[in-house]
Write a protein that binds this DNA or RNA. Sequence first.
RNA 1: CAGGUCGGUUGGGCGAUCGCGGUGGCGCGUUGUCGCCAUCGAGGAAAGUCCGCACUCCAUAGAGCACGGCGUCGGAUAGUCCCCGGGGCGGGGAAGCCUCCGUAAGGAGCGAACCUGCCGGACAAGGGCCACAGAAACAAACAGCCCCGCGCUUGCGCGGGGUAAUGGUGAAAAGGUGGUGUAAGAGACCACCGGCGUUUGCAGUAAUGCAGAGCGUCAGGUAACCCCCGCCGGGAGCAAGGCCAAGCAGGGACGAAGCCAUCUGCGGAUGGCGGGAGACGGCUCGUCUUCAUACGUAUCCAAUCACGCGGUGGUUGGGUCAGUCCCGGGUAGGCUGCAUCGAGCGGCGCGGCGACGCGCCGCCCAGAGAGAUGAUCGCACAUGCGGGGCAACCCGCAGGACAGAAUGCGGCUUAUAGACCGACCUGAGGC
RNA 2: UGGGGAGUCGUCCAACGGCAGGACACAUCCCUCUGGAGGAUGGUAUCUUGGUUCGAAUCCAGGCUCCCCAG
Length: 116
Amino acid sequence: MQRKFRLTRSEDFKRVRRSGRSYAHPLVVLVVDKNPQGNLRIGVAAGRSAGAAVRRNRAKRLLREAMRTLTPTIASHTDLILIARSGLASATLADTRSALLNLLQRAQLISPPHES
RNA sequence: CAGGUCGGUUGGGCGAUCGCGGUGGCGCGUUGUCGCCAUCGAGGAAAGUCCGCACUCCAUAGAGCACGGCGUCGGAUAGUCCCCGGGGCGGGGAAGCCUCCGUAAGGAGCGAACCUGCCGGACAAGGGCCACAGAAACAAACAGCCCCGCGCUUGCGCGGGGUAAUGGUGAAAAGGUGGUGUAAGAGACCACCGGCGUUUGCAGUAAUGCAGAGCGUCAGGUAACCCCCGCCGGGAGCAAGGCCAAGCAGGGACGAAGCCAUCUGCGGAUGGCGGGAGACGGCUCGUCUUCAUACGUAUCCAAUCACGCGGUGGUUGGGUCAGUCCCGGGUAGGCUGCAUCGAGCGGCGCGGCGACGCGCCGCCCAGAGAGAUGAUCGCACAUGCGGGGCAACCCGCAGGACAGAAUGCGGCUUAUAGACCGACCUGAGGC
RNA sequence: UGGGGAGUCGUCCAACGGCAGGACACAUCCCUCUGGAGGAUGGUAUCUUGGUUCGAAUCCAGGCUCCCCAG
């Protein structure tokens, strides 16, 4: 995921966390808000509760890798924040991807893949 | 060979595809949060932040006090209480050997390499504390032993004195054993052992050790309690610091004037001409950007008057109000510090027991800012499990620790699956 | 990057360097037709590793975990 499609500034994170809707899953939390520029941006976060530095990095890498394949199917004009929870660092890539798919469907950002 | 220790090296390899970050080069009807190519991309601890430096900013006449740290000797270093090598006093240390006890099983002692804790002063001075037990906890006499006097039931009571060997208590009671000595005793005296703010010789740079002489042997412990002595110490930290700088607020300069048309819900809105400020140009002018009809018994200041006097009100005078431009400081934010030119890394040689030092050759090696290393697959490899095989080995499944740079460096501490190499000690056997 | 604090029964708190205590909870018994309440009895702990000391929860050092503060 290239940096230009990433949420980077602190005020963006604050805005999305304050005014966006959140959807929870045991592995990850999704926060959705409208993007003022009209494109899709994604932020990834892992707090102290996600573990030590290796586990936090592992969780963020898993989220980025899982989102890489899902990004083209997501509706635009939104800012997303993915917050890792404590169990994510020991999860597999397939687990992460299905968790994200579940969350995106609940947020109605992606149509249910009835063909798969 | 068996057992016990210690040190060092390494920290999963090769390849393919997709993805991410930095740097360099090239490209462009699109100068971009762009595209293409090349190249580089975590560690031995990157961790904890326990020490010490570099670097940066602030403070700084001198001296003293307070506070904090350190305290054996020598060395190494840019520097360190922490590194290296010694010294002293403790603690730990397998099997076996050896010694002792035991008929034996076994037990106790000794115990190597090595590991590990501590290190000024309790006699240079002072204060505090030492529970319980015990007569007594730093100064003493409970029982006991002995002497003297008195009494009588002649081995006991009372009174006075001597003593600290014996008993019991305790972690600790003015060194231990044997003798001389004595009324009983006592370093009172003697021998040996132990000890020492004494001293001589030898070894060592020194701490210290060994040997001898001397001192009768000295009134406990605790300074990781206060304290005393000696030495050392300015503060902050890359979110340090430097540069640029929206917005808001501040200071300065300039600073206006309306008229017409259309619509109208009569509040106003839009447009034209004119006006203000600034920028640019070919500068008596043109173009562009932008602003306004706000002015009110608004608000601020000064003087003065009145009253019900820290206040309120009146009068007079002056300032402020739109906008533009300029100025300094500076917030958000950006750039830098900051990506090796260095206490740098690798190799070889030399010196040193070692920490480390010196010389030569080669190399240029991560750098983000919501924070780059991931995913999938294949081939071998170490390991574990199951099966087959006499065996080498084959097949299947599982599966590779601790852990992620954020200014850099040195030391320490802590976590760590394994793999490899080397050294030391003890014992047994062989030559 | 720097600074501060805490760790004691299952939980919340006490404790001069000298026998670790209290409340609630838990277990057993009594009381009751049963349960609750009440009463009696009991078990249970100093984060960890070393050191100083005759003696350590307390003093010192290293480690682990958690919390807080400043920029």
